[in-house]
Structure formats: C-alpha cells, structure tokens
C-alpha cells in the first residue's frame, strides 16, 4: 500500500476538519530538521552548506515535540542533515509517535542497520530511505562508493524486522528515465518496498554541483517517459495520482508552500523547505506574517524550476479532497499504490 490505511483516514479527517473550520492555510507535513550535519556531501544537496557552529547544533527531543504540537500537522518528516547522526533520534521518534504523529524518518541508511534496534515497528513509523538510482548512479549522486549496498542491506533488515520502509528518489539531470525505471523495478520486485516517493531535484543555489538540476520542461519530459513504462502499474507510489499527473505536465498546480513548514535548528524557516529567507521563532508567525502570495511558480524566479513534492503534494492532496472523483482515484491509489494518468 502506498500509505497505510490508518494514515490515509487520519489525514483525510484532518483535511475535512480544516475545511469545516475554513482554514485557508494549514500544514500537512512538518519538515523537522533536528540537525544539519550529515555523513554524506551529495552534489545536489543545499542543506549542509552551513558553518561548523551551525552544523554542531541539534534540536533537543523536547524542542522537536514542541514543534510538532505547535504546528499540528498529522505527519512529521524528520530530515536534515542525517537524522540518524542525532544522538537522541530514538527519543524524538518515540515522543512523536506517542503524540500520534505519522513519522517519516528520512535517512541515507548508512547507519540504519545498526540503529534499527533503537526503534520499534509501528504503524506510525515509516523509514524513508534515500535512493537515487541503482548502485552506480546512486553512489555517484551521493559521491561515495558502497552507499547503495549498505542501503539495500539495511532495507532488507528493516523489512525483516517488520518496519514499514519506503524510499525517496530525487530525479536529477544525470538520471535517465530508464535508470529510474530499473531502480523502481528493483525496489518493487526485489526489496518489496512499501511505497516510493519521487521528486525532481530543486536547484539549490548553494548546491556544489549546479549541473545536476533539470529545468521544468525537462522534468515534465522525463516524468512523462518514466511514467509511460508499462511496469509503472506495479509501482507503489506514496503520492496522490494528481501529483503524478502534475509531474507529467497534465495538471496545472501552484505551490502550497505552507503545506510543509520547516522547523530546523535555526527556527521556522521562511518561506518553505527549499527556499530560505530567514527564520521566525513561532509557527504562528510563519503562517500569519509571511506574504505567501509572493511565492510560487510564475511569481518568484527561484520557483521556476521547482516541482518538488514538498510544495506540490499538499496542493494535490487538497485538490483531491475537493473532488469526489479524484478522492476515489486516490483511494484506489492508496490501496494499490498506483495512480496518475
């Protein structure tokens, strides 16, 4: 199943509640970055270029729980940095689960196999492993040999122990549709992964290698080819069908930047997970004092080549809730993991 049934029900109920309350802007997924430090230095990453004094900072477990409560989003995605480097990541996850948050623990999986004993399988916990390709491509994207094999071993062990494991794939200019197809076939057929997320890379100005990023027309072309492969029917995506349509240029969408608010060691990041115009101290400040209409495709040049799921999946989710037909389609997609036209 692309996402657990219980998660689908809880998120749907949350969305309905927001609609009844006529809330115009509300979060769906809290992007929690309890640290920026990482044990990799990927060419397409714009998160780890901070000075040492910031890389040495960590959010405490209490700060993480407070952020989740303040934000109120039903889903928390723990990113970074590499979360498994955090000395209290197990406490953070446990506390979030106690608060009935659906936690996505995003990891490059280098430390995962050893860390598994710190966690207990739960319907509220999903381990989301970064996988950009099969061995050669993945190791090239993360700029270190052997990472793919470690990740695959960790995924197998996590699955054996009963954890729910998904993957997160970023599509860059260096990855061809056939390479991504091969990866998705491997993840689906060999590793029996529970769900896959896929997103085009965002052209971070601070990323060391600027040549890896796709432009918007290239992204659409790449995803049209990728999602036209016949095997695609068997792939289990953790996305709404509408988001997959959007990636193929079949649906027009505007970004919902407030859908995935980001809390890092520096505060609540304005305006979104990918762009940084500074930090505010409270979630309320972020939502109420950001001039959201300034941002988005066609409005801000930095958004021109962004089709990332952290901005558009929230749009797709809200549109899905607004349409009974799309709701039915997404329901089938949730059960079977497919979707998209």
């Amino acid at each position: 199943m692309g996402i657990p049934l219980r998660q689908a029900v809880v998120v749907s109920a949350y969305l309905m509640k927001q609609q009844i309350k006529r809330n115009k802007r509300y979060p769906l997924v809290l992007m929690l970055e309890p640290l920026y430090r990482c044990n990799l230095a990927c060419g397409g990453c714009g998160k780890i270029q901070h000075p040492e004094e910031i890389l040495g900072q960590y959010l405490s477990a209490e700060e993480c729980w407070a952020a989740a409560e303040e934000c109120g989003a039903p889903v928390v995605s723990i990113a970074g940095g590499e979360p498994l480097v955090h000395p209290h990541i197990d406490r953070i996850v446990e506390g979030l689960i106690e608060r009935k948050k659906f936690v996505y623990l995003c990891t490059n999986a280098i430390l995962l196999e050893k860390a598994l004993s710190k966690f207990k399988p739960s319907v509220y916990l999903t381990i989301s492993v970064h996988m950009d390709g099969l061995r050669e491509l993945h190791d090239a994207m993360v700029d270190r040999e052997g990472v793919f094999d470690k990740a695959v071993a960790a995924i197998r062990e996590a699955k054996r122990r009963g954890f729910r494991v998904t993957t997160n794939t970023t599509v860059f200019a260096d990855s061809s549709p056939s390479q991504i197809r091969d990866l998705f076939n491997f993840l689906t057929n060999e590793l029996k992964i529970d769900g896959m997320m896929v997103s085009p890379g965002y052209d971070y100005p601070k990323a060391p290698n600027q040549s890896v990023f796709l432009r918007r027309p290239q992204m659409i072309e790449t995803f049209r080819k990728l999602l036209a492969f016949p095997e695609r029917r068997g792939w289990r995506f953790s996305h709404t069908p509408l988001f997959l349509d959007f990636l193929q240029g079949k649906e027009a969408m505007q970004c919902t930047a407030w859908g995935n608010p980001t809390r890092s060691v520096l505060g609540w990041q304005r305006p979104c997970y990918l762009m940084n115009e500074g930090y505010v101290t409270t979630f309320r400040e972020l939502i109420e004092e950001t001039e959201w209409d300034r941002y988005g495709y066609g409005r801000d040049a930095r958004c021109t080549n962004c089709m990332a799921h952290c901005g558009y999946e929230a749009t797709a989710t809200k549109a899905t809730m607004a349409s009974p037909l799309e709701g039915l389609r997404a329901g089938i997609g949730t059960m079977l993991g497919g979707g998209g036209r």
């Binding site: 027309p217 659409i220 240029g249 027009a252 495709y297 066609g298 409005r299």
Partner: peptide
C-alpha cells in the same frame, strides 16, 4: 490549453 501555457510560460 491553459495547463500547457501555464507549464510553458508561467504567466498568471
């Protein structure tokens, strides 16, 4: 047609 123009031009 509107979707295609939006994707191509990014005009509001």
């Amino acid at each position: 047609a509107k979707t295609e123009l939006w994707n191509t031009h990014g005009a509001g």
